[in-house]
Design a protein around this nucleic acid. Structure first.
Length: 110
DNA sequence: GAGTTGACATCTC
DNA sequence: AGAGATGCCAACT
């Protein structure tokens, strides 16, 4: 592994630290890792999470609270079901009360 | 080795 | 305020 994806490891760690019934955004994680411009990398990390640890990628959404990565899950509504299973309301691939359920690692975790 | 893609975000018009 | 264009950095082709 010439490319030491330490950045990815951090992403997985933060994603795994997301409290139950909470959600966060790629930019929030990226910003927490001092990479506010690398939000895409966070998404890429989640893409690899398919074969990684049990990363609750369903708790990670974009800035709008939209389940953009829903299509990357096995099924089609699996992500939404997982969120609803945690008490999170999802409407049209969009998290309801996203601001309330939003979990910022740079503030909450701190 | 070089070009394109990508689970986003921010700036500019 | 809404829509379009650009930037990021790593992986994939």
């Amino acid at each position: 592994m010439s490319t030491a994806p330490n950045f990815f490891e951090s992403v997985y760690e933060v994603a795994a630290l997301i409290p139950y019934g909470r959600v966060t955004s790629y930019g929030a994680i990226a910003r927490y890792l001092s990479a506010p411009r690398s939000a895409r990398m966070v998404g890429w990390a989640m893409n690899n999470c398919n074969g990684r640890e049990d990363i609750p990628a369903h708790r990670v959404v974009n800035r709008k609270g939209m389940l953009t990565g829903k299509f990357h899950f096995e099924g089609t509504n699996l992500m939404q079901q997982l969120l609803e299973a945690e008490g999170i309301k999802v409407k049209d691939n969009q998290i309801v009360d996203f601001e309330t359920l939003f979990w910022d690692p740079s503030k909450e975790l701190l």
